[in-house]
Write a protein that binds this DNA or RNA. Structure first.
Lengths: 327, 327
DNA sequence: CTCTATAATGAAAACGATTTCAAATTTGTT
DNA sequence: AACAAATTTGAAATCGTTTTCATTATAGAG
């Protein structure tokens, strides 16, 4: 491996001179030229580990996600990446499968790595994790949720589901079922369910709640079968996600229901297949890629911010209701 | 920051002893105990940059992808991650947007980082890149393509499209159009198109070729409109990907065609919406996650392999034809 | 032409681990 | 009890940079 010292020898200057050439510092034209040539000839590239050790800073940011092969997650990561790459940072990825233990593991590992900052997606909050986040030695931003005391970028999950619920009520539906997901997830789980319930109560309507096993189409399908069996007079189904909604639609169609005449259906997410099904799916678009970009921007400000005490930044991103045939 | 030296002082031993405690080496019970206590008390964690600098090895592997927010890519990455994480490696992610310049940039950057190995997905081959791959100082595996002289894991793109084409011919279709993508991509572009053409020629049928602009549903939609205008008697359409196929189906349905009576359609990919459309889409399943796992396993072998000269490993993964209503 | 500010320079000391090596200690063998 | 072998130990060198600091060359001011 060719080192800075080698370059110094070749160019007949001191190592300090080479370092100054690379990082900016006063240096004569003549020596600059010689160093430039030596570097060009050898293809020398500085050893990052040495740089990191010496400076204590690494141009990497950690990204901790539950899983990478999910539409929303991968879009957020794409957003993060576009901003970070533009600023010369690369991404160190950690996937947790939703396990707190792994989340803490990566939080530690990344700090050991001396990343410049960390972004955590779709986490759930426990006292232990709150501590871990607070005592993180590098800037940290959370996406997808808002836990009050930590910088974050999140969607208006509540507003989106509220709007969908109101639209469904306005459409004349009265027997409405909500198909939700695990409420340990404060955004997708809790906030959306709560929004639906609040809006229904506001209209003096009863709320029926079914909890899907996971986020897959199949779970929506199963929930719909329960609905058919237990609440046959249902005329509206609100789903926490688009995939669930598609599963629900499939089951209802198979059961001979006419959509949307017999039952209205809504999802959240604006997944790409939403306009391919019959009927097309009414949904709320969330801005995942934007979310990643904003999170990255905030993190960059925190990383490169001069001042010691940074303000708490919390961004709530809006939604857009996409009214289609299924409502 | 608390260092190994601090621990040594606290435990009243030499730094070497602490290092031996961490890495294994002869050490008395007594000292082990004192060191263990000191570490527990302080929460000391070794500085990775120092370790990397000293040992020249970093438990990270680089993953270079065109974009992360794609179904197939994110699934491959998930596969890579599951194997790598299990072996204590984390992932350094680089996205190229298909630009060779960025690909080379990350290839260099990651080597500077002293990652243990690199996996490159869905790349295209140029002489310059072939050189770059060959001169890579760390083990390297390519996924999604086979360029002959580099370790790789790839799908049987040719076989899959051949089987689909033959099935469509057996179904009685005679006026078949192939909707493909950019052939700079040797797998998705070239191999699939070639398979379709070969199979058609084999059956003495003409091949009509339309090139989609990109991989989006909308492009399939546009291609289908061209087909309707230029080749109105088409009775079968083979698509390089499922998204294109869905766009095609949408356009045909809007044009009043009955599917599959009037026209048969096939895609490749087994995307999750394939069973939600009317008709459901006939497709070929590829094993993306498996691909990632296998690539990771190969890379691990190369990294941890004792011998200097490693054999060239090339894995071709099979496919499964999923025959559904659209054929 | 002198004197002071400024720019250019390299030696040497970090950064925080691992590893070599020789010395000191323990263990086992006769 | 005496010696060889094996184990335990810490001092010091090392990895490849950056940065401090004292020194020397250069330029600008009077």
């Amino acid at each position: 491996m060719i080192t800075l010292k080698d370059i110094a020898q070749m160019a007949d200057v001191s190592p300090s001179a080479v370092s100054r050439y690379l990082n900016g510092g006063s240096l004569s034209e003549e020596k600059s030229r010689r160093i430039r040539d030596a570097i060009a000839q050898t293809g020398y590239r500085p050893n990052q580990a040495a740089q990191t050790l010496r400076t204590g800073a690494l141009k990497q940011v950690g990204v901790i996600v539950p899983k990478i092969n999910s539409n929303s997650v991968s879009n957020v990561v794409a957003g993060i990446n576009s901003v970070m790459a533009a600023n010369g940072y690369s991404l160190l990825l950690g996937t947790t499968a939703g396990q707190d233990k792994k989340e803490l593991h990566f939080l530690n590992l990344m700090q050991d790595n001396q990343v410049s900052g960390i972004i955590v997606m779709g986490t759930t909050m426990t006292p232990m994790k709150k501590d871990a986040f607070k005592s993180c030695r590098v800037p940290l931003v959370i996406t997808g949720q808002n836990f009050g005391e930590i910088c974050c970028v999140h969607h208006d999950d509540y507003g989106a589901m509220q709007a969908l619920t109101e639209a469904m009520i306005a459409r004349g539906r009265r027997k409405i079922v909500y198909v939700g997901v695990d409420e340990k997830d404060a955004a997708t789980g809790l906030a959306r369910r709560k929004a639906a319930f609040d809006a229904l109560r506001q209209a003096d309507l009863d709320a029926v709640y079914l909890l899907a096993q996971d986020y897959e189409v199949e779970s929506g399908y199963q929930c719909a079968q329960q609905i058919l069996a237990l609440y046959p007079d249902t005329d509206g189904i609100l789903c926490a996600t688009d995939k669930l909604a598609h599963g629900v639609m499939k089951a209802l169609k198979e059961a001979g229901k006419h959509l949307p005449e017999d039952v209205s259906i809504c999802g959240v997410g604006d997944d790409w297949p939403d306009q391919l099904t019959t009927p097309t799916l009414t949904t709320a678009r969330l801005y995942h890629e934007q979310c990643g970009e904003d999170a990255a921007s905030i993190l960059l400000q925190m990383i490169e911010g001069k001042t010691e005490d940074q303000p708490l930044r919390q961004i709530k991103l809006g939604y857009t209701i996409l009214r289609r045939e299924s409502l």
